[in-house]
Amino acid sequence: MRKFNLLVLNEWLKISKKRSNIIPYVILLVLSLAVGYMTRTFAADMYASAADFTADSLQPRGIGQLLAILVIVGTAGIVSREYSQGTIKFLLIRARSRTAILASKYVTVLLYTLSMQVVATVGLFLSGAVFFGLSGGEAGIGEILTSLLYSTVYCTVYATIGFMLGILTKSTGVTIGATIFATTIDKLVISREFYKYVLFPNLNLAAYKDGGAPMQGMTLTFSIILLCIYMTLFLLAGFAVFRRRDVA
């Protein structure tokens, strides 16, 4: 396990030692403040408290979509850049299996996603505290955590799609492009029976809040099972290709 942790540390350092790594975190904080300020200015009585504001803004249809995009941009290169830089050769001639190396990369992607979520939550809450105050409102810590969970699920699925595409295409640009395109069309609803088996309508679990459903006949359990199936497929495809591929 110690060996694996060291691999994760390696991957984390590769991301965090980039000088540009701070930018997405700054964007999140600035945007949180900007959203808070604008809401306060144009719809002052929309939220009663910081918790209300945070719980609502964090959802995938709020700042959550931007979060997903930032996560994709931050992690799309984790596999493909090793190929384009040529560092893949030194990486794979170590006494570590390809599976362990790729798994450490995926764990790093998850950690990165989580770190972005935490920063976004803290940023939104601070912004809420400044513009709406701490007292009053209906929402509490429970609502914030629920929203955080929805947002994390949404971002993790996209991070996993990006991770797989990065392995399959070996191109950072294609990965970012294709995944961001997906985030822009995932709100479309095609009113056909088959569409509920497609990934997109199942992504935003927040839609089930208050007894709703993205489409008729869909339930929370249904979506969770479908998301699990899709994630497993993405990861299987990624690992199978990475393990077998000739590095030429």
Partner: peptide
Amino acid sequence: QIGAIIENPEFYPHM
């Protein structure tokens, strides 16, 4: 048991 340089040695440039 192997140490190798295969074609050009490539490292992480930002480190």
